[in-house]
Design a protein around this nucleic acid. Structure first.
Lengths: 328, 328
DNA sequence: TTGTACGCGTTATCAA
DNA sequence: TTGATAACGCGTACAA
């Protein structure tokens, strides 16, 4: 690997001058700059990040901890965050913990060891030991998607989202409404359920049932909804996520139910897949892009020592598509 | 940040001994080890990666360059690769280039600067300047999903995939077969198209049309298929990806066509979304998990200086679901 | 079995 | 405007 000394030698300059050119700091004559720049181009010099970091104590990197990349929601979120960080001159170190404490601990250690300038915690559970280590390190942190006590958070209002789903069905005239979804241990999911229940209560209603699975895969969601449709006879099903709603659509089809004539189904998230079904899924859209960008915005401010921007307004939108209608 | 000297002081040892404990190298008495370990736990020591890297010249990191994380296929691939690397003791540095040369160049520089031990290039174009820099750096590289000349590659046989799609439709009795898909500039897509054409030719057929869009979003795919159905009257449509096929399903529905009675549709990839449609999509499954794991396997061997394992067998599987049937 | 001392590549300070 | 030099934190020869 060519180093700064090689460039200095080649350009007939000192390493200090090369450093000035590379970092755009201090005064360098035009002629000297040109000589050094061509030396850099010829030899293909890339500054050693380790050495840089050791001097400056900063790596211009931001850790992004999230539970999975193969779940489309988190893939999109990671993408948005990464792009936003890039625009601010930071590199994202994306770590998918696979919901395993072991992974989480290893990644937190790696982030600390890499001297990341900040961390975005996406949908991490509050009682995580690893997160405590991170907090102890006194690095700027922003929680995303799921609030973490004592940490600046950027998250949609899941409670309100639950209300919007219920409100839409109530307005259509539904009274026999059941809730299905996963994963049950997810705080955002629980908040949505609470919002649903609250909105129903205000209309003098209660959910026919609330069934949450541990697994949020397609098959689990479909099986859950199938049982629900067998046991009860709801006129509408609320999925706590698009995944759950799509599973419900399939469970209904298996039982010969026509959507939305015999059964209304509504989801949450508005992932791309919500538009793939036929009819396309009615759902409450979460502004994923805005969430990622706001998280970066708040984090960058803290990393620069600026005052923390206020939590942004992240409006949820009812996307009325083809799976909801008045009850039969 | 606590450093190795702090631990040494606290434990009444020298930094050399602490280093030995941390790295599990050399001899340390049990008593001393216990003292040092408790000091590490109390003070919360994490070795500085920059200093470590400077000494050893290695970062135990592997760069993963891919075009996007918000495209589900790449999100899944990134996840698989990341998990596999983790099991081998490497951390993944996932870089999504957003298909922008500027991003790509910046990330390549970052990878070089981070002294990554190896790089996995997913679906990168061959004529990329950035990649040339990477090759010049003499780091182990493996190309994934899309072959790169002169580099070990792990990729499904897209040509064969094209053949499988065509073969299935031909076997069902279809003769009026059209191809739709995106993005047109993607090499894997072009290979699939070539495979389709070859298989049709062997049956004495030619595609009714081949239409590829630049954009691989849902709307573009649907519009493309809609035009195709208006202009021609195929009995079957081959999507070069699940996305294209799902778009075709919607275009058909808009025109009142019943699937698979009036029109057969087949896709490629077998993403989770292929099962979301009603009826679920018939498609050719690409072994994404095996691809990611094989790429890591080959890369790790090279990083360890071991001989390069042979390219693995990555079988494609026809997933016969609900969108294909004999022609009307 | 443990400790001392050097060098890894940079940046920043200071002097010229 | 440029150059010499001292840290930064760690791993490892080598000495004890």
């Amino acid at each position: 690997m060519t180093k700064i000394r090689d460039i200095a030698k080649r350009a007939g300059a000192s390493i200090a001058t090369v450093s000035r050119v590379v970092n755009g700091s201090g005064y360098v004559s035009a002629e000297m700059r040109a000589r050094i720049e061509s030396a850099i181009a010829e030899l293909g010099y890339t500054p050693n990040a380790g050495a840089r970091m050791m001097r400056s104590g900063s790596s211009r990197m931001v850790g992004v901890l999230l539970p999975a990349l193969d779940v489309h929601f988190f893939g999109i979120l990671a993408h948005v965050v990464e792009q936003a960080l890039f625009r601010q001159g930071y590199h994202a170190m994306i770590c998918s913990t696979a919901e395993s404490p072991e992974h989480e601990a290893a990644y937190v250690a790696a982030l600390l060891s890499q001297q990341v300038d900040g961390v975005i915690l996406a949908s991490v559970t509050a009682d995580s030991v690893a997160v405590d280590r991170l907090r102890a390190a006194d690095i700027p942190i922003v929680a995303m998607d799921r609030a973490l006590p004592g940490l600046p958070t950027v998250s949609a209002d899941h409670h309100q989202g639950g209300r919007l789903m219920a409100r839409h069905l109530i307005a259509l005239g539904h009274r026999k409404i059941a809730v299905t979804g996963a994963p049950g241990h997810s705080a955002p999911v629980q908040e949505r359920v609470a919002g649903i229940t609250a909105e129903l209560a205000e209309a003098g209603l209660a959910p026919l049932a609330i069934r949450l699975a541990a697994d949020h895969g397609f098959d689990a969601c479909r099986a859950l909804a199938a049982d629900l449709l067998t046991d009860l006879a709801p006129s509408a099903l609320i999925g706590t996520s698009d995944m759950a709603a799509i599973g419900a659509l399939h469970a209904a089809a298996e039982r010969g139910l026509s959507i939305p004539r015999d059964l209304s189904v509504i989801g949450f998230d508005d992932l791309p897949a919500a538009r793939y079904t036929l009819p396309p899924l009615t759902t409450v859209a979460q502004p994923i892009r805005a969430i990622g960008e706001a998280a970066v915005h708040r984090l960058v401010a803290r990393m620069r020592g600026q005052p923390l921007p206020p939590p942004p307004d992240l409006p949820l939108t009812l996307m009325e598509r083809g799976t909801t209608a008045p009850p039969p």
